[in-house]
Every structure is written in C-alpha cells, then in structure tokens.
C-alpha cells in the first residue's frame, strides 16, 4: 500500500477523548505507519464527518470507533484492518 493513510481522532477535549488520542498515536507507532494522527475538537468538522458519539476515530474517513474506548490491542486491530 502506497496510499497515504489519514487517521483522525475526534473528541470534545475531555480526558477520555485525550486518552483515546494517545492510544491511537501509540497504536500507529507500533504498527509503524507513516502517518500523523490528527486530533480534532472542532464541532463543525465533527458533524461533517457524520459522527454522533464521541470519542471517535476514522481511518481514511471511515468510522472505526465511535462512542467508546476499546482496549489497546483492539485499537491496533481495527486500524490495521482498515488501512
């Protein structure tokens, strides 16, 4: 895969959301992905992504996590399945 991978974490800036952001960054690093994980708190953008539950994660605009924080292994699995 040579395609650019875009991972975005959406949250309201609450501690739970920040924790998910850290875990996703960690997972991306462990998977050795060449990508910046973005953290988005702008509601305009959150609504544009079609999200109704936070925190959430998208990989290339596909929602893979919404409304809960899975275990670190599960996060890694979900990311690697969707790149």
């Amino acid at each position: 895969m040579t395609q650019q991978i875009i991972i975005q974490v959406f949250g309201s800036g609450c501690p739970t959301c920040k924790k998910l952001y850290e875990q996703v960054k960690q997972a991306a690093a462990e998977l050795k992905l060449k990508t910046e994980v973005a953290y988005i708190t702008d509601y305009q953008k959150i609504m544009a992504a079609g999200l109704m539950a936070l925190p959430a994660v998208t990989v290339n605009d596909k929602i893979i996590i919404a409304g809960l924080i899975p275990k670190p292994e599960k996060i890694k699995k979900l990311i690697s399945e969707n790149i």
Binding site: S12, C14, Y43, A53, L54
Partner: peptide
C-alpha cells in the same frame, strides 16, 4: 442510551441536523 458529556453536543447537533 449511555450518556457521556463528551457525546452531548454531537448528539444534539446530529438531531438538529
């Protein structure tokens, strides 16, 4: 529905949307 203050706004806006 679970309620987390984190989700209050996207839910609210999503409904109005």
């Amino acid at each position: 529905t679970p309620f987390c203050t984190c989700s209050a706004i996207p839910l609210f806006l999503g409904f109005l949307q």
